[in-house]
Design a protein around this nucleic acid. Sequence first.
DNA 1: CCAGTATCCTGCAGGC
DNA 2: TGCCTGCAGGATACTG
Length: 273
Amino acid sequence: MPELPEVETVRRALEAHVRGRRVMRLEARPVQLRRPLDPERLATALTGARLQTPRRRGKHLLVDTSNGGTLLVHLGMTGRLILTDAARDEPRHTHLVLGLDDGRVLRYVDPRRFGLVHWLEPGEEALDPSLVRLGSEPLDPDLPALLPGLIRSRRAPIKSLLLDQHLIAGVGNIYANEALWRARIDPARAGHRIAPRRLARLATVLKEVLEEAIAAGGTTIRDFASLDTEAGLFAVKLRVYGRLDEPCPACATPIRRRMLAGRSTFFCPRCQR
DNA sequence: CCAGTATCCTGCAGGC
DNA sequence: TGCCTGCAGGATACTG
Protein backbone atom coordinates (compact mmCIF):
# COMPACT_ATOMS: atom_id res chain seq x y z
CA MET A 1 0.00 0.00 0.00
CA PRO A 2 2.67 2.47 -0.84
CA GLU A 3 1.06 5.83 -1.39
CA LEU A 4 2.72 9.14 -2.13
CA PRO A 5 4.60 9.47 1.21
CA GLU A 6 6.01 5.95 1.03
CA VAL A 7 7.05 6.41 -2.58
CA GLU A 8 8.66 9.73 -1.73
CA THR A 9 10.51 8.03 1.13
CA VAL A 10 11.83 5.40 -1.25
CA ARG A 11 12.78 8.13 -3.71
CA ARG A 12 14.82 9.90 -1.08
CA ALA A 13 16.45 6.66 -0.01
CA LEU A 14 17.41 5.95 -3.61
CA GLU A 15 18.80 9.44 -3.93
CA ALA A 16 20.87 8.99 -0.79
CA HIS A 17 22.10 5.45 -1.41
CA VAL A 18 21.90 4.59 -5.09
CA ARG A 19 22.32 7.79 -7.05
CA GLY A 20 25.47 7.84 -9.13
CA ARG A 21 25.92 4.06 -9.07
CA ARG A 22 26.49 2.15 -12.25
CA VAL A 23 24.52 -1.00 -13.07
CA MET A 24 27.06 -3.79 -13.62
CA ARG A 25 24.75 -6.73 -13.82
CA LEU A 26 21.04 -7.17 -14.44
CA GLU A 27 18.82 -10.15 -13.87
CA ALA A 28 15.12 -10.03 -14.66
CA ARG A 29 12.24 -12.47 -14.97
CA PRO A 30 9.56 -12.20 -17.62
CA VAL A 31 6.79 -11.86 -15.09
CA GLN A 32 3.33 -10.45 -15.70
CA LEU A 33 3.13 -7.22 -13.74
CA ARG A 34 0.67 -4.49 -14.65
CA ARG A 35 2.51 -4.72 -17.92
CA PRO A 36 4.78 -7.64 -18.77
CA LEU A 37 8.27 -7.09 -17.43
CA ASP A 38 10.63 -7.26 -20.41
CA PRO A 39 14.05 -8.63 -19.36
CA GLU A 40 15.68 -8.06 -22.76
CA ARG A 41 14.65 -4.45 -22.97
CA LEU A 42 15.73 -3.75 -19.39
CA ALA A 43 19.09 -5.49 -19.79
CA THR A 44 19.92 -3.70 -23.02
CA ALA A 45 18.94 -0.33 -21.64
CA LEU A 46 20.29 -0.52 -18.11
CA THR A 47 23.47 -2.57 -18.18
CA GLY A 48 26.38 -0.16 -17.80
CA ALA A 49 24.12 2.81 -17.16
CA ARG A 50 24.66 5.22 -14.30
CA LEU A 51 21.61 5.98 -12.17
CA GLN A 52 20.79 9.62 -11.67
CA THR A 53 18.62 11.48 -9.16
CA PRO A 54 15.24 9.72 -9.00
CA ARG A 55 12.05 11.68 -9.53
CA ARG A 56 8.51 11.00 -8.35
CA ARG A 57 5.21 11.59 -10.14
CA GLY A 58 2.18 10.56 -8.11
CA LYS A 59 3.00 7.05 -6.94
CA HIS A 60 5.50 6.50 -9.75
CA LEU A 61 9.28 6.54 -9.45
CA LEU A 62 11.32 7.71 -12.42
CA VAL A 63 15.01 6.93 -12.44
CA ASP A 64 16.87 8.71 -15.21
CA THR A 65 20.08 7.15 -16.41
CA SER A 66 23.29 8.37 -17.99
CA ASN A 67 22.35 6.94 -21.38
CA GLY A 68 19.24 9.05 -21.75
CA GLY A 69 16.32 6.80 -20.89
CA THR A 70 14.34 6.40 -17.70
CA LEU A 71 13.37 3.46 -15.53
CA LEU A 72 9.71 3.72 -14.53
CA VAL A 73 8.74 1.90 -11.34
CA HIS A 74 5.41 1.60 -9.56
CA LEU A 75 5.20 -0.38 -6.34
CA GLY A 76 1.53 -1.29 -6.70
CA MET A 77 0.20 -2.85 -3.53
CA THR A 78 3.08 -4.96 -2.35
CA GLY A 79 6.08 -3.81 -4.37
CA ARG A 80 9.35 -3.10 -2.58
CA LEU A 81 12.82 -1.99 -3.52
CA ILE A 82 15.39 -3.70 -1.35
CA LEU A 83 19.02 -2.62 -1.20
CA THR A 84 21.45 -5.07 0.36
CA ASP A 85 25.18 -4.96 0.87
CA ALA A 86 25.96 -8.10 -1.07
CA ALA A 87 24.37 -10.97 -2.88
CA ARG A 88 22.35 -12.45 -0.10
CA ASP A 89 19.36 -14.76 0.03
CA GLU A 90 16.92 -13.73 -2.60
CA PRO A 91 13.43 -12.93 -1.30
CA ARG A 92 10.52 -14.75 -2.91
CA HIS A 93 8.85 -12.86 -5.76
CA THR A 94 12.01 -11.04 -6.78
CA HIS A 95 11.44 -9.89 -10.35
CA LEU A 96 14.42 -7.63 -11.01
CA VAL A 97 17.99 -7.59 -9.66
CA LEU A 98 20.45 -4.77 -10.30
CA GLY A 99 24.06 -5.45 -9.31
CA LEU A 100 25.69 -2.08 -8.63
CA ASP A 101 29.30 -0.97 -8.98
CA ASP A 102 29.75 -0.61 -5.22
CA GLY A 103 28.97 -4.29 -4.72
CA ARG A 104 25.48 -3.70 -3.45
CA VAL A 105 22.35 -5.17 -4.97
CA LEU A 106 19.03 -3.46 -5.61
CA ARG A 107 16.04 -5.76 -5.94
CA TYR A 108 12.44 -5.22 -6.99
CA VAL A 109 10.17 -7.61 -5.12
CA ASP A 110 6.39 -7.71 -5.61
CA PRO A 111 4.37 -10.75 -4.48
CA ARG A 112 1.02 -9.52 -5.72
CA ARG A 113 2.39 -8.20 -9.00
CA PHE A 114 0.21 -5.10 -9.18
CA GLY A 115 3.34 -3.02 -9.72
CA LEU A 116 5.15 -1.88 -12.82
CA VAL A 117 8.75 -1.90 -14.05
CA HIS A 118 9.13 -0.43 -17.50
CA TRP A 119 11.94 1.09 -19.50
CA LEU A 120 11.24 4.43 -21.16
CA GLU A 121 13.35 5.49 -24.11
CA PRO A 122 14.01 9.22 -24.40
CA GLY A 123 10.76 10.90 -25.39
CA GLU A 124 8.50 8.05 -24.30
CA GLU A 125 7.84 9.51 -20.87
CA ALA A 126 5.61 12.23 -22.27
CA LEU A 127 3.42 9.61 -23.98
CA ASP A 128 3.39 6.80 -21.45
CA PRO A 129 -0.20 5.73 -20.67
CA SER A 130 0.53 5.48 -16.94
CA LEU A 131 1.90 9.00 -16.76
CA VAL A 132 0.22 11.04 -19.40
CA ARG A 133 -3.17 11.48 -17.74
CA LEU A 134 -2.01 11.87 -14.14
CA GLY A 135 -3.62 14.71 -12.21
CA SER A 136 -2.20 17.37 -9.91
CA GLU A 137 0.46 16.73 -7.33
CA PRO A 138 -1.11 17.00 -3.86
CA LEU A 139 1.95 18.81 -2.51
CA ASP A 140 1.60 21.51 -5.16
CA PRO A 141 1.00 24.79 -3.27
CA ASP A 142 -1.72 25.63 -5.80
CA LEU A 143 -3.86 22.60 -4.92
CA PRO A 144 -6.19 24.42 -2.49
CA ALA A 145 -7.00 26.85 -5.30
CA LEU A 146 -7.25 24.07 -7.86
CA LEU A 147 -9.26 21.40 -6.05
CA PRO A 148 -12.70 23.07 -6.03
CA GLY A 149 -12.57 23.32 -9.82
CA LEU A 150 -11.63 19.64 -10.16
CA ILE A 151 -14.41 18.42 -7.87
CA ARG A 152 -17.23 20.88 -8.41
CA SER A 153 -18.90 19.16 -11.34
CA ARG A 154 -18.53 15.61 -10.06
CA ARG A 155 -21.30 13.58 -8.45
CA ALA A 156 -19.18 10.69 -7.21
CA PRO A 157 -18.36 10.36 -3.50
CA ILE A 158 -15.47 12.62 -2.53
CA LYS A 159 -13.54 9.56 -1.32
CA SER A 160 -13.66 8.05 -4.81
CA LEU A 161 -12.59 11.34 -6.34
CA LEU A 162 -9.60 11.60 -4.01
CA LEU A 163 -8.51 8.14 -5.13
CA ASP A 164 -8.84 9.04 -8.83
CA GLN A 165 -5.24 9.46 -9.99
CA HIS A 166 -6.44 11.47 -12.99
CA LEU A 167 -7.62 14.24 -10.67
CA ILE A 168 -4.95 14.11 -7.94
CA ALA A 169 -1.94 11.83 -8.27
CA GLY A 170 -0.59 9.99 -5.25
CA VAL A 171 -3.45 9.59 -2.78
CA GLY A 172 -4.38 6.05 -1.80
CA ASN A 173 -6.91 4.56 0.57
CA ILE A 174 -5.13 5.26 3.85
CA TYR A 175 -4.44 8.95 3.33
CA ALA A 176 -7.81 9.55 1.65
CA ASN A 177 -9.46 8.33 4.86
CA GLU A 178 -7.16 10.39 7.05
CA ALA A 179 -7.55 13.61 5.05
CA LEU A 180 -11.35 13.35 5.05
CA TRP A 181 -11.36 12.90 8.81
CA ARG A 182 -9.13 15.93 9.26
CA ALA A 183 -11.37 17.98 6.98
CA ARG A 184 -14.52 16.68 8.77
CA ILE A 185 -16.06 15.62 5.46
CA ASP A 186 -18.26 12.53 5.06
CA PRO A 187 -16.42 10.24 2.59
CA ALA A 188 -19.71 9.43 0.87
CA ARG A 189 -20.63 13.06 0.22
CA ALA A 190 -20.95 13.83 -3.49
CA GLY A 191 -18.20 16.09 -4.78
CA HIS A 192 -20.56 18.73 -6.13
CA ARG A 193 -22.26 19.01 -2.75
CA ILE A 194 -19.16 20.23 -0.96
CA ALA A 195 -18.61 23.97 -0.66
CA PRO A 196 -15.50 25.32 -2.40
CA ARG A 197 -14.08 26.57 0.90
CA ARG A 198 -14.32 23.08 2.40
CA LEU A 199 -12.57 21.63 -0.65
CA ALA A 200 -9.76 24.15 -0.28
CA ARG A 201 -9.53 23.10 3.37
CA LEU A 202 -9.44 19.45 2.31
CA ALA A 203 -6.51 20.19 -0.01
CA THR A 204 -4.68 21.87 2.86
CA VAL A 205 -5.14 19.05 5.38
CA LEU A 206 -4.33 16.49 2.69
CA LYS A 207 -1.00 18.20 2.15
CA GLU A 208 -0.45 18.28 5.92
CA VAL A 209 -1.05 14.58 6.46
CA LEU A 210 1.12 13.64 3.48
CA GLU A 211 3.95 15.87 4.70
CA GLU A 212 3.73 14.44 8.20
CA ALA A 213 3.96 10.96 6.75
CA ILE A 214 6.96 11.89 4.62
CA ALA A 215 8.65 13.35 7.67
CA ALA A 216 7.92 10.18 9.63
CA GLY A 217 9.31 8.08 6.79
CA GLY A 218 12.36 10.28 6.74
CA THR A 219 13.12 9.45 10.33
CA THR A 220 13.41 5.80 9.41
CA ILE A 221 15.65 6.46 6.44
CA ARG A 222 18.92 7.11 8.31
CA ASP A 223 20.59 3.73 8.26
CA PHE A 224 18.99 2.29 5.26
CA ALA A 225 19.90 -1.28 4.63
CA SER A 226 16.63 -1.91 2.89
CA LEU A 227 14.46 0.80 1.42
CA ASP A 228 11.53 -0.33 3.46
CA THR A 229 8.57 1.91 4.13
CA GLU A 230 6.68 -0.06 6.74
CA ALA A 231 8.37 1.68 9.66
CA GLY A 232 7.44 5.07 8.27
CA LEU A 233 3.82 4.09 7.92
CA PHE A 234 3.76 2.94 11.52
CA ALA A 235 5.32 6.18 12.63
CA VAL A 236 2.46 8.30 11.28
CA LYS A 237 -0.43 8.57 13.60
CA LEU A 238 -3.47 7.22 11.78
CA ARG A 239 -6.64 8.66 13.30
CA VAL A 240 -9.30 6.56 11.58
CA TYR A 241 -7.78 4.07 9.14
CA GLY A 242 -7.98 0.53 10.54
CA ARG A 243 -9.64 1.77 13.73
CA LEU A 244 -13.10 0.24 13.46
CA ASP A 245 -15.05 0.68 16.74
CA GLU A 246 -12.24 2.64 18.36
CA PRO A 247 -13.11 6.10 19.72
CA CYS A 248 -12.78 9.04 17.36
CA PRO A 249 -9.77 11.07 18.58
CA ALA A 250 -11.90 14.22 18.39
CA CYS A 251 -15.24 13.21 19.90
CA ALA A 252 -14.90 9.59 21.11
CA THR A 253 -17.73 8.32 18.90
CA PRO A 254 -16.86 4.81 17.66
CA ILE A 255 -15.24 4.83 14.23
CA ARG A 256 -17.33 3.16 11.55
CA ARG A 257 -16.45 1.34 8.39
CA ARG A 258 -18.25 1.09 5.08
CA MET A 259 -17.31 0.12 1.56
CA LEU A 260 -16.80 2.94 -0.92
CA ALA A 261 -15.23 2.62 -4.34
CA GLY A 262 -14.70 -1.02 -3.40
CA ARG A 263 -12.42 -0.01 -0.55
CA SER A 264 -12.71 -0.07 3.22
CA THR A 265 -13.61 3.40 4.37
CA PHE A 266 -13.19 4.46 7.99
CA PHE A 267 -14.88 7.57 9.34
CA CYS A 268 -16.42 9.25 12.36
CA PRO A 269 -20.20 9.44 11.83
CA ARG A 270 -20.43 12.44 14.15
CA CYS A 271 -17.51 14.63 13.04
CA GLN A 272 -17.70 13.94 9.34
CA ARG A 273 -20.69 15.42 7.52
C1' DC B 1 -17.85 11.77 -20.36
C1' DC B 2 -19.24 9.77 -15.90
C1' DA B 3 -20.03 6.42 -12.15
C1' DG B 4 -19.80 1.98 -10.50
C1' DT B 5 -18.08 -2.81 -10.59
C1' DA B 6 -15.02 -6.69 -11.83
C1' DT B 7 -10.40 -8.08 -12.44
C1' DC B 8 -5.59 -9.08 -11.76
C1' DC B 9 -2.50 -11.40 -7.71
C1' DT B 10 -0.61 -13.57 -3.13
C1' DG B 11 -0.63 -13.80 1.82
C1' DC B 12 -2.91 -13.99 5.84
C1' DA B 13 -6.67 -14.27 9.29
C1' DG B 14 -10.72 -16.45 10.83
C1' DG B 15 -14.22 -20.11 10.87
C1' DC B 16 -15.20 -24.85 11.19
C1' DT C 1 -4.20 -29.70 11.54
C1' DG C 2 -6.04 -28.40 7.11
C1' DC C 3 -9.25 -26.58 4.06
C1' DC C 4 -12.11 -22.90 2.64
C1' DT C 5 -13.55 -18.07 2.34
C1' DG C 6 -12.92 -13.33 2.33
C1' DC C 7 -10.24 -9.38 2.59
C1' DA C 8 -6.27 -6.32 1.61
C1' DG C 9 -6.13 -2.50 -2.62
C1' DG C 10 -3.66 0.35 -7.24
C1' DA C 11 -4.87 0.77 -11.69
C1' DT C 12 -7.64 -0.28 -15.48
C1' DA C 13 -11.14 -2.80 -18.49
C1' DC C 14 -15.59 -2.99 -18.87
C1' DT C 15 -20.78 -1.94 -18.36
C1' DG C 16 -24.79 0.94 -18.27
